[in-house]
Design a binder for these strands. Sequence first.
DNA 1: TCACTTAGATAGTAATACTATCATTTAAGT
DNA 2: ACTTAAATGATAGTATTACTATCTAAGTGA
Lengths: 218, 218
Amino acid sequence: MIQITLNEKIFVKDPLDTELGKRIIFSSINLIDELGFEAFTFKKLGSKINSTEASIYRYFTNKNQLLSYLISWYWSWLHYQLIFQTNNINDPQQCFRIALRLFTEPIQMDDSFKHVDEQALHRIVVSESSKAYLRKEVDKDNKDGYHSSYKRLVKAVADIVRKMNPSYPYAESLVSTVIEGAHHQAFFAEHLPTLTNVNQSGNSLEEFFSQLVLKTIQ
Amino acid sequence: MIQITLNEKIFVKDPLDTELGKRIIFSSINLIDELGFEAFTFKKLGSKINSTEASIYRYFTNKNQLLSYLISWYWSWLHYQLIFQTNNINDPQQCFRIALRLFTEPIQMDDSFKHVDEQALHRIVVSESSKAYLRKEVDKDNKDGYHSSYKRLVKAVADIVRKMNPSYPYAESLVSTVIEGAHHQAFFAEHLPTLTNVNQSGNSLEEFFSQLVLKTIQ
DNA sequence: TCACTTAGATAGTAATACTATCATTTAAGT
DNA sequence: ACTTAAATGATAGTATTACTATCTAAGTGA
């Protein structure tokens, strides 16, 4: 049983400390997935969990903070998976393959987190995660550590890339491009298929990015 | 003097047909750039151009349609630039270089469009363009042609990629990854620099993607 | 038992995202 | 010159959003 701990400034009151807090997290994932982030409101969430808007505000200052919390939680969880799955593996090539699979394949969540719908959270990450930072408030948010989980994950994978080729100077850029790109390509494959070749005639997301990275860093 | 024509369903009434329409376009670029898309409203725009909310609704059904219009206009304009600048150039490698420069360098707009602030529009494309499609309504929007300018541009550049290597099966994915990636990397370089190596010790956006593409398609 | 935490209930406010109506100006056709 | 239609402005109204504030009740722990 593991516990993922997030930066304290990313919530008003830690939702994992209470029963209501856990209901907020659990149900917000389903509701954001269902309605999309724009149409999602604390009022709707309140009525869904038989609580009130005011109660939810005791945990998060606004819905953007809640989104950032969910996304951060997801990155921390992926990072934990990466560390766990690459444990005792020395070949950086193989480590990278594991990382790439985490980014491109729908995740399988273990029983430690039954309260979380992993498929739904993944869909939210694909469709909504960039909205957590594409904001005017990004610098303030960043100071408060809203994006530190993401930054840690990118650094960890960039370190793997550097182990494969220490002279490649764009490790972080490559990794963040792959992560964001994986989301975009998955979204395009579903909604705007002319923008992608993924899911067409045997082409796969993983294969596309695998080739791209290995050839790029040679 | 050229005229960029956009799909008819992307507006209620063509803003380029009237004086007020042009003021809407011109000022919305500045206002979205200044406030960010979330804080931007038709009411604020109305008072900025000495008109009213109701008048703006006669051109666009909502602010998302206006955003889609601006972004579409930008893609159409880039596409035009691409065709113009690659005219009479047969070497696909060189054509690609031109395309890449269009995606990575702040554009220089010609005098035909003095009413448009090119720098501001580019900032909007970087920070807000993905919000035009990362929506629950994406399929409906797509049916109405909201994204056809983007799709045409991606196809045009993918055709260049295929000329360089006809057997590469991920041309569209590669191009859309580069375009979206160029935005992300530019945004990261400014706001979340630990996620990128661009703008650090002589590293450039253009160089990163140039290497990435050329090595990938070999 | 007292203090404290937690949450439910309710109310209120300013702003947002529209829709509707009506009057006025302007431009275009006969 | 007269008529009509299109374009805009002015104003009002509505439901919802995004909060903030206050008050009460229940439960917990020392």
